[in-house]
């Protein structure tokens, strides 16, 4: 479903983000992308939604080379990939429910679909009682759950989470991890970029380890093992 074919991303001679990276992700997999800060995790995610173009190599999504897609059809690709970020990226001026319905509106869904789906998704992330709250009235964990609701509301094939627990305490971290597992069980491919050792070790799923822009380890039931820890 996702295939990185010998991908390099070079910003300039002193800044090489990725070097000859190749890996494949199958449908319904749960893959952790680990490595210290600056190892290239975020670059992998940006290449996948064509926010960045690879310097060399190709990135395939469902058999399509995403780096060759014209800008006109990129929105359609991005609706198939849900994104969750460390800093949530919620709109401060919109309520929880509005933040979620916003993604459906942008995708051109009808009002009827939206009013039916949004409460369901908010219930799925356990926020059925907070839908009129604005982001500043929610805790970090709650904000991240709104962000996850927004990411999955268009039923994407892939959910990409970039350090989703980076700003959260342990209790909230586990809630988010359990939520990601639940979404994966419902049939969505999940890519989790993280440097939280406990989370990765607990999951016991596939781990792709990046160091200085290279894939150094790719194990089906992996652990978080990094030689030069700085993250």
């Amino acid at each position: 479903m996702i295939y990185f074919d010998n991908v390099s991303k070079i910003y300039n001679a002193n800044s090489v983000a990725l070097k000859n990276v190749s890996f494949e992700i199958k449908p319904k997999e749960f893959v952790s992308l680990v490595g210290p800060s600056g190892a290239g995790k975020s670059t992998v995610l940006k290449l996948l939604i064509a926010e960045e173009q690879p310097t060399e190599g190709r990135v395939y999504f469902d058999g399509t080379d995403v780096s060759s897609l014209p800008a006109r059809v990129l929105p359609r690709l991005r609706r198939r990939v849900g994104m969750v970020f460390q800093d949530y990226k919620l709109l401060a001026s919109k309520t929880a429910a509005e933040n979620v319905s916003f993604a459906m509106e942008a995708a051109g869904r009808t009002e009827a679909e939206i009013s039916e789906t949004v409460p369901e998704v908010l219930a799925l992330v356990d926020l059925a009682d907070k839908w009129t709250n604005f982001p500043h009235e929610l805790s970090g964990g709650e904000k991240q759950r709104v962000a996850i609701a927004r990411a999955i509301v268009n039923q994407p094939d892939v959910l990409m989470a970039d350090e989703p627990t980076g700003n959260l305490d342990p209790v909230n971290t586990w809630e988010i991890v359990r939520l990601l597992q639940k979404i994966n069980e419902l049939g969505t491919t999940v890519i989790l970029a993280t440097h939280d050792k406990q989370v990765v070790d607990h999951l016991g799923r596939r781990v792709v380890t990046l160091e200085k822009g290279e894939v150094v380890r790719d194990e089906a039931k992996g652990k978080y093992i990094i030689n030069h820890r700085n993250g």
């Binding site: 800008a71 991005r78 916003f102 927004r150």
Partner: peptide, 12 residues
């Protein structure tokens, strides 16, 4: 930026 990430078209 967020609109782009959730797949809004440029005209939208």
């Amino acid at each position: 930026n967020i609109m782009k990430l959730v797949g809004a078209t440029n005209w939208y």
